[in-house]
């Protein structure tokens, strides 16, 4: 069969491969090359070696965006997962209406980032109004605004994954533990958590990469104000590309660094959690 099929390669693979090559692969390679050049229209690229990278790291905006993003990712990964896991625990108990609750908590996840950003801009500005302040008053407001937004969007999503994980725990393990006289907290620590570790891996991975790549929400909620102090990496790269003529190379260098960071975080994080899964 294998032999026969080979000649069908053009039909089965080629359309996808072409689209992938055009939309992703060529731009990706081109992007790496261009990060070492100065260019405005791709054709006029001139080799400048590592200068773009040096300029990227010496730009205060980039390092600021980097720290902001890292802080944001840490805080939102923790909060989203803690809340999502707690909700999942509650919703796997036998109570009325779990399905309805699940439906409600999940819904914000379907709404697009731009729309989410403006919804929360309205609400947060409304809350701050009586105090004579707005979201752009301090960078901290934008930070926590983004964290709240992220929680609202992602909790439901992570929750359904945790629910699936908890429901997959074999009933007899639980029963056995109960017969052995384990209390609720012990069951949680010794059985539930270790056995949902695969879900934890997935959830950490998803929240982490979503936090790092956040763009639409950032653009709509604060657009970086005040003074670009709430600009995250993705938005900073966008600003570098389109904000002024002549800094495209620096933008591309920032994008390469961004890609490396995201990849690195993903690899480290998957390895760490996988290891824990095995140990348990």
């Amino acid at each position: 069969m294998v032999r026969q099929n080979k000649k069908y390669f053009p039909i089965f693979v080629l359309p996808t491969l072409i689209a992938f090559t055009v939309a992703f692969f060529i731009p990706f390679l081109l992007g790496i090359v261009l990060s070492f050049t100065k260019f405005t229209t791709v054709i006029d690229a001139q080799w400048v070696g590592l200068r773009n990278y040096m300029e990227a790291f010496s730009s205060k905006e980039f390092t600021n965006a980097l720290w902001f993003t890292v802080k944001f990712a840490i805080v939102s990964v923790i909060t989203v997962n803690v809340f999502a896991f707690l909700l999942a625990l509650l919703l796997t108990r036998k109570i009325k209406g779990t399905n309805l609750f699940r439906t409600v908590f999940f819904m914000p996840n379907l709404i697009g980032g731009i729309v989410l950003g403006y919804i929360w801009q309205l609400i947060l500005n409304g809350i701050l109004f009586p105090f004579g302040m707005t979201l752009t008053f301090k960078p901290e407001f934008g930070f926590w605004g983004l964290v709240i937004l992220m929680n609202w969007q992602m909790i439901g999503y992570m929750m359904v994954i945790y629910i699936a994980g908890i429901q997959n725990i074999p009933k007899d393990v639980m029963e056995a533990a109960k017969i052995d006289g384990a209390d609720r907290f012990q069951i949680l620590r010794k059985i539930t958590i270790p056995l949902v570790m695969p879900s934890v891996t997935i959830c950490l991975f998803l929240t982490m990469s979503n936090s790092f790549k956040l763009f639409d929400q950032n653009l709509a909620l604060t657009a970086g104000a005040p003074s670009r102090k709430t600009t995250m990496l993705a938005l900073d790269i966008y600003n570098t590309f389109y904000g002024s003529v002549g800094s495209e190379g620096i933008g591309q260098a920032k994008a390469v660094v961004f890609t490396l960071i995201v990849a690195l975080v993903a690899v480290i994080q998957l390895n760490l959690t996988r290891k824990r899964e095995v140990e348990n």
Binding site: V22, F28, G31, T41
Partner: peptide
């Protein structure tokens, strides 16, 4: 191919944002 496809999932959009726009424009996409 399978590995390249899979790895592409990690890459953030900003990496290819500018070049993809250019390629798409040249190819009238």
């Amino acid at each position: 191919l399978y590995y390249i496809f899979t790895l592409s999932m990690i890459v953030p959009f900003q990496m290819v944002m500018f070049t993809m726009t250019k390629v798409a424009n040249v190819l009238h996409l």
